[in-house]
Structures are given as structure tokens and as C-alpha cells.
Design a protein around this nucleic acid. Structure first.
Lengths: 176, 176
DNA sequence: GTTTTTTTAAAATAAATGTTCTAAAACTAA
DNA sequence: TTAGTTTTAGAACATTTATTTTAAAAAAAC
């Protein structure tokens, strides 16, 4: 997963993976079938063990505060110097280079997070934390849209530091 | 350029390029040196002949209206079904897979567009079209941040259609 | 403790990759 | 026309790629 995250699917060779993991080539093929299967498993692992815990915050706090914490988390992560983006979203620009299966995993992942944000926003609306006239589905899309922006804009080493400043703008747009 | 745009640097082979262009392998190497040189030239061509004319709108209209037209243009482009993103920004997630030279071209391109937006916003501020307390540099960053978001979010075929809806939110954030 | 199964290391394979070479063809200048 | 240069087609090269095979080593089952 780490190598795919760092270099992307196409620029990651099996030899890279074997070297990095110390695994045996044959047993890797036995376990994962082929490179696509391996990548698919890497996506699953990323979802379940790396990024899942990070958006758990939305499950535990399905309200405005949860969205705030989630966004802050994303923005602060991107401001770090070793930022590698998101294994899933990193591959959106090369959607047809990965397997259709993997592309669907990526799509499903993004949709899932967006849906968590929407639930939180709907609750926030019920709580009176955001206006009753707000379109929560659209706001959720906008939040995830901004996460996508973070994934790419965060690669500009000299500019990424401004990302946390966007937090107030986006939250204002959600609240008011 | 088309193949690099469609598949990305790493997933584009010289044979692909030769097949697609009908060029001779040897003359291609003579002209561009190697694959990296070819990619670099593709980036230049994209900048000068594909995307340049599209952000010319910012040069011709260095004011709020120019920013509005630019953003609308970007958003409408992404909503199209054959959307391929931006050749430059597409490669941000694979920055260390392309040559340092190419990576710098990408960075310079993004910085240039951002600077055009900032100039336009500064003029808009002078025109009284946006508040005098607004941080135009930060707003310009936010606009380009959203363009980055578009490049990735626009790859979700089932969701991209909502992108134009973000236009009002972003412009409100700029104006008010 | 022997047999059976699984895992390993490493060589082998076949295709694709980036790049260069060769010799013929096409073009240019005198 | 002739001599010189450039371009072409395409084979050749060396490396890397994903994947499979082989035979030995390790582990599990009986």
C-alpha cells in the first residue's frame, strides 16, 4: 500500500513491492492473484486501516462539530511536509489506467465519505446549527470537492500552507 | 500531448505516441531527446495552445467579471462527459514520477494562473466589486484550490454534474 | 517420523519498455 | 546531375515488466 500511495499504480512495479515488503513473489501472487488484485487489496487496507479511523470522527460525531473536525483534520494533514495525498483520490486522474474494479472501489469510497458528511450536515440542520434552507446534499458534495482540492493543491510544497486558511471560508459557506 | 493527457506520463509509452502521431521514432528522439523531453514539450504545447487561450479571459478581463467567466468556464468544462482534467494538474499526484523539470513546469503553470486571478481580484477590489478587507491573495489561492478540486472531482462521472452549483458559493465567498 | 502440504528462493519466460543503429529513401544545395 | 544532408522504416538492444515454473526448504498432518 505504501508504494502504491507514494508512486501510484502504474509507477509501482512488483519488484518494488517485493523489495519493500520482503514478501516472496510467488506467495504474493498466490495471495493476490495479480498486480490488480494486489492494488485492490491495498485500497481495501487503506480504507479499513488508514483512512477509516480518520473519518470515524464523522461516525462518532454526526453533526456540525464532526464536519468541522473532519475538515480541520484533512487540511492539517495536507499542510504537513510528507503529505502524499489520498491513495484513493490520487488515482482519480488515472481512472482508466487502473482496473475497473479498483476504479469502482475509489468511487465507492468517495461516495461513502460524502454520504457521512451529508448525514452529519442533515443532523446539524436538525440541530439548528445550519440554516433550514441549506441544501445539505450539495454542501456535502462541496466539502468532498474541497477534499479533492486538498489532495492536489497539497502537492504544491510552497503553497500548501495556505490550505488551513480555507477552513473558515468553507465553514462560513456551510453555516450561513 | 493527447496521449499524455488521456493516460498520464507513466502509462504512456513511446509506441503509443508513435502510433497516435504517425511520427517516426528516430525523428521524435532527434527532436525531443527522450521521453521526458517529449513530455516537457507536451506540457509547453498544452500551456501555449490549449489552456492558455482559456485563461486568456483573465488577461483580457483582469477584474471580477474575468474571474467569474474563468470559473464558469472551468466548471462547465468539467461537467462535460469527455472531461480529462488538466494535463498539468493531472500529474500533481505523481509529481516525483515525472522529471523535476516537468514538475517545475506544472508548478509554474499553476502559480501563473493563480497570479492572474489575484491581479484580477486586486482590480476588483479597487473597483469596489469585492470588500476592501478581503485578502485577495488568499481568495486567489482558494479559486485555484477549487480548480484543483474540479480536476479530481470531475472524474466522478455520476457526481461531476453538481460542480457548476459550487459557482455561486465560491463567488459569494469572494464578494462578501 | 514419515508423508503431505505449504512456503520459499531463484531462475525462466514472454512481452513491453525506452532508446539506438543501419541502411535505404527523400530532400537540399552546388 | 551530383554530392551532401536529413528523414525514414524498421530491426536491434538492453532493461524492465508482470507472471510462472522448478526444485529445495519449512511446516503441518497423521
Amino acid at each position: 500500500m505504501g508504494v502504491f500511495w507514494q508512486n501510484g499504480y502504474k509507477a509501482t512495479s512488483i519488484s518494488d513491492v517485493v523489495r519493500e515488503t520482503g514478501l516472496n513473489t510467488a506467495s504474493m501472487y498466490k495471495e493476490f492473484g495479480d498486480k490488480e488484485g494486489l492494488f485492490s487489496a491495498a485500497l481495501d487496507h487503506y480504507r479499513d486501516h488508514v483512512i477509516g479511523p480518520r473519518y470515524r470522527i464523522l461516525i462518532d460525531n454526526p453533526n456540525l462539530e464532526g464536519v468541522e473536525m473532519f475538515l480541520r483534520n484533512v487540511f492539517l494533514g495536507a499542510a504537513k511536509s510528507e503529505y502524499k495525498g489520498c491513495l484513493m483520490m490520487n488515482h482519480l486522474a488515472q481512472k482508466h489506467v487502473i482496473s475497473p474494479e479498483a476504479a469502482e472501489q475509489v468511487g465507492a469510497f468517495c461516495a461513502e465519505v460524502e454520504s457521512l458528511v451529508e448525514t452529519a450536515l442533515r443532523n446539524a440542520q436538525a440541530d439548528g446549527d445550519i440554516g433550514p434552507d441549506k441544501d445539505t446534499a450539495q454542501l456535502a458534495s462541496f466539502v468532498i470537492f474541497c477534499v479533492h482540492g486538498t489532495v492536489l493543491y497539497g502537492r504544491h510544497d510552497e503553497k500548501k500552507h495556505v490550505i488551513p486558511n480555507f477552513y473558515d471560508m468553507i465553514m462560513r459557506e456551510i453555516r450561513e
